[in-house]
Design a binder for these strands. Sequence first.
DNA 1: AGGCGCTTGTGAAGACGTGCACAAATCGCG
DNA 2: CGCGATTTGTGCACGTCTTCACAAGCGCCT
Lengths: 230, 230
Amino acid sequence: MARLPEYLRALHNLAETGHETISSEGLANAAGVNSAKLRKDLSQLGSYGTRGVGYDVGLLIEQIEYVLGLTQRRAVALVGVGNLGHALAGYDGFATRGFRIAALFDADPGRVGEEINGLVVRHIDELPQVAADESIAIGVIATPAAAAQQVADQLVAVGVTSILNFAPCVLSVPPGVDVRKVDLAIELQILSFHEHRKASLTAFPTTGGSALTALPNGFVVTESQEAIGT
Amino acid sequence: MARLPEYLRALHNLAETGHETISSEGLANAAGVNSAKLRKDLSQLGSYGTRGVGYDVGLLIEQIEYVLGLTQRRAVALVGVGNLGHALAGYDGFATRGFRIAALFDADPGRVGEEINGLVVRHIDELPQVAADESIAIGVIATPAAAAQQVADQLVAVGVTSILNFAPCVLSVPPGVDVRKVDLAIELQILSFHEHRKASLTAFPTTGGSALTALPNGFVVTESQEAIGT
DNA sequence: AGGCGCTTGTGAAGACGTGCACAAATCGCG
DNA sequence: CGCGATTTGTGCACGTCTTCACAAGCGCCT
């Protein structure tokens, strides 16, 4: 389930503040979800808490990390060291949450050789050699949209089976390869939609706005703050 | 609907390549969704294509932009000019897709005064004055998790009603304020989960892996490449 | 003018996720 | 040792989203 990482983060917070056990309601609050949903998610894990007491924080962390495959520190290849790629290369959230950026690549010869956070940027053509040394299963694409598909093909060719794509385009990959897409502009556009809806609702509180302003069969958006699918 | 921005991007691509009309199936392919789903989404818009022909690309772009509230260029305030915030401030995808970064803020005096992409970083305490000048409805939080809640409160206090949160924590905001969260590490962890699942499936193809490796009532994940909710 | 092929829009069925409400289980205390 | 307070795990019902399949409509060609 896609909510597990959120639970995991909340659990780490709780562990740091000294909690040894946590009730489903407490954890649900910390993760921003319904407590019944959380219990159902955790029950699917097969892991069990203790009735009357709650869940053992340490044990639950172990379980979730195991299910997420975080017991091994996974090597990630980052392609595209532009504006965004630069920030990603320096983002310590990856290192602290189970991942190791193993190599940086770019197609621009002007960027090759640059050192970021202790890692040297290599040319994308060196990808096969690097992949032969390190077992890289996850690739991150932070290139312009025009280059993304080609990079994806190259990643797949060297055995990458999971791709995190920041380029605003749809990638086509063979079956068995997972792609997750993060489009920052789309996130803002969704917020803009909410803004627009709110504005027209206050303007025409009874009608819900014109047929074009708000959608005919009124989109009622409940629980926000959840940007996770699949 | 949260898929509209994706359609919009695909439509812009089509417009640039000279298409004047597009069938639901063609657009569905470009956006990476099912054609029936796309038709249903568009029919809810109230906008109509022409049977036997398809949708008018230009008209559809107008309609979607209107529904998303992109007819006005929205002003965005970005708080936190660290690693990630720096990249966001320079990300031209915002400017080209309907948004204008109106102001940059940070709490670190050492960063105040720095100029990024033509904008000067101001101290977070100046937020009320800036908000008085410009009508800012959307805020982006790119601070460390420890500061995020406080920043969110400050944003809400000056009238921001939509927040895009990059900090790995849950924000609590009053009703009427929308929050979308993007956690880069979580995206990778979800991919890691897929990796783990794939690895155990190939190891034990018949059983689907041990009860802990893969989930008991096997998660079959279809259609990936969709990271949008709400 | 008429028919044919193509495409939209939508009804209906099915899958899926969500939340309630309660039984089962555990701990602590008298 | 037993009882009550508390919390998990889950059956059930409900609403939403997805997908199929097809009728209605439009343009083009003869």
